[in-house]
Amino acid sequence: MPPAGGFESIKYKRNLPFRGPGAYAILGGVTAICAYGFYRLGKGNLERRPKLEAEPSDDRELEREKMWSRIHLVPLLTAEGDRDQYRREQAALAREREIMKDVAGWEVSARGKGKWVMLTNPAGGEKRIPQPEIRDTGDSSPLSRLVYNEPVCFFL
């Protein structure tokens, strides 16, 4: 039998105060923080990100700065390398002339028989071979002497 006056009511209701910001405030806050973070990320990417096939309209400023820094140095470095290469070639020709001086009809130098080609892309393998109509196939000089491999800026 129930006690006199009935049972006590069951305590199921929340008996704790609500503290701190409400749910929507937290949701809104997190969203705002994330939005700001992605905004900064996007701005940072525009500042920095390298892109392989960059177009003039792309705003990638740190990469552009690096590229132009290198581009301004290319003539200087190429000039120095050319002088060195020319000196070495002349020395090699002088050696050849000295060694082969007793061979009648020997034509010194394979030089000038091939065409100097510039590689627009180091990965472009088919361009490594000098043009067939200019290259003397009877000439046994190594191809590497006829192909001048220049440092190429990928990002242009």
Partner: peptide, 11 residues
């Protein structure tokens, strides 16, 4: 592209 071609300009 011949190194000998542009020695003067390179200097």
């Amino acid at each position: 592209r011949d190194p000998a071609h542009c020695l003067k300009e390179g200097r």
